[in-house]
């Protein structure tokens, strides 16, 4: 039995955090969020896999703080029940709204953080390989990989069509209706060229023997069967929390 933070154990951690987000009090959730931020810097398995991932994480921290403040304040302001906890510039902040805002913000951020931590520290191709080893059909694996290929090339193609339409005098800077027409003049060649390219790519795949049927595994050594202690721990803790929550719910 091993105990390292590999991909399945990270998935079990995400599940555990989701369970916490729906069951534990908001103070615990805030604590877990802080632990995740520390983990991102302290635990190698949570380090971002690229500059882009690191940037997404930093951006999300700032975003979360803003959203937490905004959600808490706005709910305290709009949901007018319970005691008034503070009055500022003539606006009253109510207790029930404040608590609802804190609960909502902490759950929202914990849910989002857990998903984000998984993806910033796991290369997508590794995740796709993992899905394949768990039975995702080969054609869906190919579809996901092709999507990544298109995502690399689509922005530059859109930019080229945008410039071409601008050069032809498409009204990209005038009223909303004209701009919506300009949107069609960009999407139209984009979709048409993508259909033509898809036909050629589909033919090319068939010409290389790809016909949506079972094929030889690329990496037979990937079929890891050893049980990870951490994975068991996270699922076990999740079960305990769920059981305790049900017990409490039944006894209220």
């Amino acid at each position: 039995m091993k105990a390292n933070l590999d991909l399945p154990s990270k998935l079990s951690l995400v599940f555990f955090l989701w369970v916490c987000a729906f069951t534990l009090p908001w103070t615990f959730q805030v604590g877990l969020c802080l632990l995740l931020v520390i983990a991102r810097f302290a635990i190698p398995a949570f380090r971002p896999v690229s500059h882009r991932s690191a940037a997404a994480f930093s951006k999300f921290i700032l975003y979360s703080i803003t959203v937490a403040l905004l959600v808490t304040c706005l709910n305290a302001l709009f949901i007018r029940s319970g005691n008034v906890v503070a009055t500022l510039l003539g606006f009253s902040f109510y207790e029930d709204g404040l608590l609802f805002g804190l609960r909502t913000a902490s759950r929202l951020i914990l849910l989002s953080f857990s998903v984000l931590m998984f993806f910033i520290s796991t290369p997508l191709t590794v995740f796709i390989d993992y899905l394949q080893s768990k039975g995702l059909p080969q054609y869906l694996v190919l579809m996901l990989l092709l999507t990544l290929h298109f995502l690399d090339h689509l922005p530059s193609r859109i930019h080229q069509i945008f410039l071409a339409q601008q050069a032809r005098g498409a009204p990209v800077d005038s009223g909303v209706l004209s701009r919506t027409r300009a949107l069609l003049s960009i999407l139209s060649p984009l979709v048409l060229s993508s259909i033509v390219e898809s036909i050629e790519r589909g033919t090319a795949l068939e010409l290389r023997g790809f016909l949506s049927r079972p094929v030889a595994s690329r990496k037979p050594e990937d079929t890891e069967t050893r049980v990870n202690l951490l994975t068991i721990c996270f699922y076990f803790m999740s079960l305990v929390i769920i059981a305790y929550s049900i017990y409490r719910w039944l006894n209220v």
């Binding site: 190919l142 795949l205 010409l207 290389r208 023997g209």
Partner: peptide, 23 residues
């Protein structure tokens, strides 16, 4: 268009054909 776009190296690109054939 004949390049699959789903493999990172030329070597893997050629291997992709053999994967499809299961050989």
């Amino acid at each position: 268009v004949q390049i699959s776009g789903v493999r990172e190296t030329v070597f893997d690109e050629v291997l992709f054909t053999l994967e499809n054939l299961g050989t």
